[in-house]
């Protein structure tokens, strides 16, 4: 698989896919998309990069161990349910904040934080499986 064409194109392709995965994650509240599908796209990006340039390069690039990314996602997804405690509302009741930047209204919310958590759980879990499989193949 390590042809010159593939190795040349893979970094750009991976970067594009990660960017697209963030786009899919952010549009997911009202339109098709969200944390799960975004996470899958990002994990495929890492898998492609791993096939082209080797698993070690991917591990260096994402800095943290995929399982730790997964755990981080689980942690913030869990935290995202807690702010409603202070509003005397049940667990996981959504809270919204509207921020105006340069005249544009940006809605931020706890469901978004939850979705980011899901994104990290999926990225971490799937890429840790994918990288383990790719490592076996190259050994």
């Amino acid at each position: 698989m390590r042809t010159v064409i593939f190795r040349t194109i893979a970094p750009y392709l991976s970067a594009l896919m990660v960017l697209f995965s963030v786009f899919v994650l952010l549009r997911g509240h009202n339109e098709p998309g969200g944390g799960f599908i975004g996470g899958l796209i990002a994990a495929s990006a890492f898998a492609i990069y791993g096939i082209a340039c080797g698993v070690a390069a991917v591990r260096r690039a994402i800095i943290f161990h995929p399982m730790s990314l997964s755990a981080f996602g689980l942690f913030i997804a869990g935290l995202s349910g807690l702010p409603s405690l202070f509003m005397r509302q049940p667990f996981m009741t959504s809270q919204w904040w509207y921020i105006h930047i340069f005249g544009v209204e940006i809605p931020l919310s706890t469901p978004l934080i939850f979705d980011v958590g899901v994104y990290f759980v999926v990225v971490g879990a799937i890429s840790s499986i994918a990288l383990a499989l790719e490592e076996r193949e190259s050994d």
Partner: peptide, 11 residues
């Protein structure tokens, strides 16, 4: 869940 996530991060 939170404890498990912290433990996993500090594996």
């Amino acid at each position: 869940i939170l404890g498990g996530a912290i433990c996993l991060m500090m594996r």
